[in-house]
């Protein structure tokens, strides 16, 4: 019996301890398995930020505020426990702000490469950045109470302005206002007429644009058809055949060019001998023209030509005589 009592008491205590420990860990979101890296952020004031409040990056919870303490020169240092598997911005800063209207606060990690628009927040971040060593710069946005107070001041100002407007708004002002409204009505009528004219013009322009659009549509259709044909030709292999033929012709052209180049080289080699021939011919022609040398004398003197003609005539006569009287000139005997 006593043994059973001890077991029951021990089991009850163990169950209660387990309940407390598990509940405490669960409620505090301790994230035992994930651990985290501690980063220190430096603020002038953290507002309503407290230990255990969430740390968010782009709206996603990535850790919790592990501690808040007063630092040197009235700086407030907040320890942020960020989960290990979180990729942080290269140039991080922390903004403490209200998470809702009901007093919840959170520390939002931002990148200083994209600083917030609020000039006061920027100034706070710059100041914290200048003062910080390894700590992230931090700034706190005004809480709901401050915003409400500001809104209250604005509301009072609006009320004051309204009362002053009410005081200034007497019967003269009403008549002036009525006249202004009538003038405004006339201006509105003119604007309406002008608008109608412009509307008609715009309608005509629109009609032409519509026609132009139709033409463009037809052109687009034609282009589409051409593209379809090209696409069809491509699909049937004709374009490929053309390209192959072109490639072959290019080869022939390249071969012909090479041969032509060789021909040019040969012509270039023969150029000197041709020049020499021409120079010799030129020399001969010059001498003929100057009537020097044999050919020049022959060209310049007709006697030789006449004598040559006579010699030819005599030669033909001799040949005829030989043909007529061969025994006169040739004599054959066997023995």
């Amino acid at each position: 019996m006593k043994r059973r009592d001890e077991v029951v008491v021990g089991a009850t205590i163990v169950v209660a301890l387990a309940v407390i420990i598990v509940a405490a860990l669960w409620l505090s979101e301790a994230e035992l398995g994930r651990g985290g890296t501690i980063h220190v952020a430096r603020f002038r004031t953290v507002g309503g930020l407290g230990v255990g409040d969430p740390v968010v990056l782009s709206g996603v919870r990535v850790g919790r505020v592990a501690g808040i303490r007063l630092g040197e020169r009235n700086w407030v240092e907040a320890e942020l426990q960020v989960y290990r598997d979180v990729t942080l911005p290269s140039n991080p800063a922390v903004i403490a702000a209200s998470a809702s209207f009901f007093g919840e606060w959170q520390a939002g990690i931002i990148s200083l490469d994209q600083p917030p628009d609020d000039p006061k927040v920027r100034r706070d971040l710059d100041e914290a950045l200048a003062a910080a060593d390894d700590a992230w710069p931090g700034a706190a946005l005004p809480d709901i109470g401050q915003l409400t107070a500001q809104a209250g001041r604005i509301a009072r100002d609006i009320t004051l302005v309204s009362s002053r407007v009410q005081e200034a708004f007497d019967s003269t002002a009403v008549r002036a206002l009525q006249q202004s409204i009538r003038n405004f009505g006339r201006v509105a009528d003119r604007i309406a007429e002008f608008t109608e004219q412009q509307t008609n013009l715009l309608g005509a322009v629109g009609q032409r644009l519509e026609q132009g659009s139709d033409v463009l549509h037809d052109a687009a259709l034609s282009l589409q058809t051409s593209l379809a044909r090209i696409d069809s030709a491509t699909n049937q292999g004709e374009l490929e055949s053309i390209l192959e033929n072109t490639q072959e012709a290019s080869g022939y052209m390249r071969d012909a060019t090479r041969r032509f180049s060789e021909l040019i080289d040969v012509a270039h080699e023969n150029q000197e001998s041709i020049v020499r021939v021409l120079q010799a011919a030129d020399s001969i022609m010059t001498r003929i023209q100057n009537r020097s040398g044999t050919l020049g004398m022959l060209v310049g003197d007709s006697t030789l030509y006449i004598e040559t003609i006579q010699a030819v005539i005599q030669l033909r006569t001799l040949l005829a005589d030989i043909q007529a009287n061969p025994r006169k000139y040739f004599k054959f005997s066997v023995f």
Partner: peptide, 16 residues
């Protein structure tokens, strides 16, 4: 003294 916190812990869990 020992068992009151145990009972209260279980009561807290039950209440929540």
């Amino acid at each position: 003294t020992v068992m009151f916190p145990v009972v209260v812990a279980l009561a807290m869990a039950m209440g929540v």
